[in-house]
């Protein structure tokens, strides 16, 4: 391996058919670690077969190709490589590092993509927060109130939705089982709109309570829109309707 005496403005190598480096320019020595004296040791493994194929297919006409090279500073750098065979079966190779301006553009593109992805995340996080708040609101819309040792009341506020009934069911069932109540009141005075799936869940809750405690469940404060919905469900056996809160309180608190 000998050093070329020409002063060349680019790194330059001469390589034989086996890939052995026969000579190199000053800049080639600056850029690359030439200790192995073989072109293979300078080319990234993903670029080796490309170099092999393109160089073996080419002749005295120069070819240009992109290759990823290992430099002294960086294990992977993209180069434009110019290659030409001479009559002595040696390839002259010149190396031009890819323009940085390209890279800047590419980095900008990447940062825009990352921003898009993170905006997405922020939205997702906000959505998670909102869902938690909504759930909390649902839980607070059906508080459990023990009025005496034998009487408890659950007033429902707002629309009857499946989510809301799901949110209150757990704590409601637990509280009822923990006590020894003879009657359970649902106060529906503050109920707004009624969703069909909400009613289904509500009836299920009421049935569960009735089944587990054997108690009569009393629904008070039923408005006409709710009455219509409930009518479809034939609840008469195990639910009492529409006494006023006052009546109920006087029955259970004064005996």
């Amino acid at each position: 391996m000998e050093r070329l005496n020409l002063s060349l403005p680019l790194p330059c190598l001469k390589v034989n058919r086996d890939g052995r480096i026969v000579s190199y320019s000053a800049l080639a020595e600056d850029h690359f670690d030439l200790s192995k004296a073989h072109i293979r040791s300078l080319v990234d493994e993903g670029s080796i077969s490309k170099l092999g194929r393109i160089s073996s297919e080419s002749g005295p006409v120069p070819v240009k190709m992109e290759l990823n090279m290992k430099t002294k500073k960086n294990p992977l750098v993209l180069f434009d490589v110019y290659l030409q065979w001479d009559t002595e079966n040696r390839a002259t190779m010149m190396f031009v590092q890819k323009d940085r301006s390209n890279e800047e553009l590419i980095e900008k593109l990447a940062s825009i993509q990352i921003r898009l992805a993170s905006t997405d995340f922020e939205l997702l996080e906000k959505k998670d927060e909102l869902e938690q708040v909504l759930r909390r609101m649902d839980e607070l819309s059906g508080p459990f109130i023990p009025l005496s040792d034998t009487l408890c009341m659950i007033p429902l506020f707002g629309d009857i939705t499946a989510d809301k009934i799901n949110a209150i069911s757990d704590s409601c069932l637990q509280s009822v089982f923990r006590g020894n109540y003879e009657a359970i009141l649902f106060d529906l005075t503050a109920v707004g709109e009624v969703h069909a799936d909400g009613i289904d869940k509500f009836i299920m809750l009421v049935k569960t309570l009735n089944f587990m405690t054997g108690n009569v469940i009393k629904l008070i404060g039923i408005k006409p829109n709710l009455a219509k919905e409930l009518n479809h469900h034939h609840l008469d056996h195990w639910v009492q309707f529409n006494h006023s809160l006052k009546e109920e309180l006087s029955t259970y608190l004064h005996h």
């Binding site: 490309k50 194929r53 992109e66 890819k98 390209n102 593109l109 993509q113």
Partner: peptide, 20 residues
């Protein structure tokens, strides 16, 4: 195609963004 010297890494970037 890159290994066959038919396209460049810059082309790959464009293809990547489109694929994304």
């Amino acid at each position: 195609l890159w290994e066959s010297n038919e396209i460049t890494v810059a082309d790959e970037h464009l293809a990547t963004a489109t694929c994304d």
